[in-house]
Design a binder for these strands. Structure first.
Lengths: 137, 137
DNA sequence: CTGTATCCGATTAGATACTG
DNA sequence: CAGTATCTAATCGGATACAG
């Protein structure tokens, strides 16, 4: 606990958990995690943990029918962030392979944990929602 | 590796990483992680790892100036999902405390890891973006 | 196969004003 | 203090058509 803490309330927390140099700064957290805010990045990262995938193959594996447009946009952003590599083979028809970079792999492990957590806790969450909706008419 | 795999491509992956009973089903992944898709839930969860917080205190700790409206909406959704508890004290002025549930805490640990990862890799990502932007005119 | 371009509807979130 | 209500701007994502 921080030394200079005074006026303790019922709160057990005195300092923000995510601390930045300046309050306006996002410390890179927002910067990075906004990528998770979009609808597909997380799925792309997790599916690529299994190995290199072509565009079409990736599209097939992702739940919820990602459109061609959104998959392209998602992959471009991940590539720009240095999380995914894009390799083009000059064949006919064209073949493009996507894979995680080392940095991408280190991140995707965390995302996989979150995906696993979600699957494991789905029943509990569904139950909580039901209870909440009943008690809040 | 799955037994019945045939027609191997250059891909190292044969089966989707996130596997659901039916292709249409989201296995709860989308269901749960859409919560992370919004702009503030992740920050709220991480800040609450430090302990119970009142509405105003939570608002102060969150970077990027979350509006009253958005913080309220975010907290209601997290409460509905069984991740956060809301305790109202009948005082004047009113006092409302928010805290993580056990389930919320188990999730917030994963989110904290992601936040830490983001901070640690911010320089690398910034560099990757710079390089990408230069090579893509 | 792997994209790009355009249009449009849906969702999100910010600003502001007001309340118990 | 801790909300709710309303309005609006911005963003996101889907559908479609077309191209290398």
């Amino acid at each position: 606990m921080s030394p200079g803490h005074t006026g303790v309330t019922t709160s057990g927390a005195q300092d923000p958990v995510i601390v930045c140099e300046t309050p306006q700064d996002e410390c890179g957290v927002r910067d990075v995690l906004d990528r998770l805010g979009d609808k597909w990045s997380m799925y792309v990262m997790v599916e690529l943990t299994a190995g290199t995938l072509r565009f079409k193959e990736l599209q097939r594996r992702i739940h919820g029918d990602v459109s061609q447009r959104m998959l392209t946009l998602t992959l471009r952003r991940l590539e720009r962030d240095g999380l995914v590599t894009r390799t083009v083979y000059a064949t006919v028809p064209p073949q493009v392979e996507y894979a995680l970079t080392d940095m991408g792999r280190s991140m995707s492990h965390l995302l996989k944990s979150l995906a696993d957590w979600s699957i494991a806790h789905r029943p509990a969450i569904a139950e909580a929602r039901g209870a909440y909706d009943e008690s809040h008419p």
